[in-house]
Amino acid sequence: MYTASDLRKGLRIKIDNEPYIVTEFNFVKPGKGQALYRCRLKNMVNGSQFERTFRSVDVFEEADLQEKKMQYLYQEEGKYCFMDNDTYEQIFLNEDQIGDAKNFLLDNIEVEVLLFENRPLGISLPNFIDVVVTKAEPWARGDSVSGNTKPVTVQTGYQLQVPPFIEEGEMIRIDTRSGEYITRVKG
């Protein structure tokens, strides 16, 4: 059981017996008024989206999803293919179902495929992944004005802000829930 204060981007909850994922989340509280939890929700079965505002007294059940360990194989024309390594069964998900996770799909990475009534609807990634930086501007040492962060591209094509000392070819750890840099991984 979740309460409104558990709501965050990526949380999956059950509404009218169907699974929904929170795609946007905002905590708002006007003046001395009551706390409001504004969410954009996506129905994981049919993809329909809507906005809803919850209050602190609201409670939710976890979405009724089964998880199945599968390996990511490849992407072709917007279809993402995953395989069950025990049965060799393959399933496909579209880009919308993959969502932001497409930024972190390393070749052969193991993920949890989420199933609702045996239908695959999405995936759940490990919280942290280690990736190689494929493109980074060199660090101008002593440049203290613009030297706080710099953008880099990692092997999946994803771009993010990192500390200025990170260089091309280095490995970094990313939090897949926030998409943010966590630390440098020494090889």
Binding site: V28, G33, L36
Partner: peptide, 8 residues
Amino acid sequence: RFDEVLAC
């Protein structure tokens, strides 16, 4: 709904 209308 005062707070909600005000905020949203």
